[in-house]
Design a binder for these strands. Structure first.
Lengths: 107, 107
DNA sequence: TTTATCCATAGCCAACGGGTTATCGATTCC
DNA sequence: GGAATCGATAACCCGTTGGCTATGGATAAA
């Protein structure tokens, strides 16, 4: 059972898939056909990528007749931001300890 | 020629590799041996991962006799933060335009 | 009702990636 | 100097994954 960061990093690691997500962020809701037209890969490939993005919570789908509209779910990026902050936090913490140590050595 | 986000996402997508980076962030500089001991994979595997992390700029190596010390380079995460901000920015921008449109329609 | 469009799924294949063992150069210890 | 340790590289294996074509189900158009 992979954690949230795992899913996000793996999902966003593929350039084609990340490009699809970026486009949905930039331009808002899009149909599969519209996304396929500019993607450089086949429609099934796009559908598969959108499925992966959906499972990661990064996009939502909305069915309207025979077309499916996808839109970005920005909130799903939260674990990514959390992880980055955590790494920065660890680093800062070690830095603080070092400062502390140097301060005590100085006395 | 992959861009910076590409390299970062791909590099951090692997759980073992990300765990190595996390440990270096938490605990600071470590030798390959020390990292291997807690990693659950073989020493060559660890070396390979560290090589990938180094090429991504996420770690630095320091040679001291026959051991190599690795440490995290937190600054290398910048493109990741940039990308996330950018996605949030696009989203916000679209929201602003929508607000604007609604405001104009209201008049 | 028949035809055309949209998208998802199935099935297949080639490439990539992460793991292993074996080995080697370099250093340190005896 | 000889033995042992450290870490990087080579060579290999196998599972995953991202691409494709073919197809089918559902809806819209004719």
């Amino acid at each position: 059972m992979p954690n949230a960061q795992d899913v996000l990093f793996r999902t966003l690691a593929d350039p084609t898939r990340r490009a699809l997500f970026e486009r949905l962020c930039r331009e808002g809701e899009q149909t599969v056909g519209s996304l396929t037209a500019q993607s450089g890969v086949s429609q099934p490939a796009v559908s598969k990528h959108l499925g992966v993005l959906r499972q990661a919570g990064l996009v939502r789908d909305r069915h309207e007749g025979r077309q499916t509209h996808y839109s970005a779910q920005l909130g799903a990026l939260a674990p990514l931001i959390d992880w980055t902050s955590q790494m920065a936090g660890f680093w800062q913490s070690r830095f603080d300890h070092l400062e502390d140590l140097l301060k005590r050595m100085d006395q």
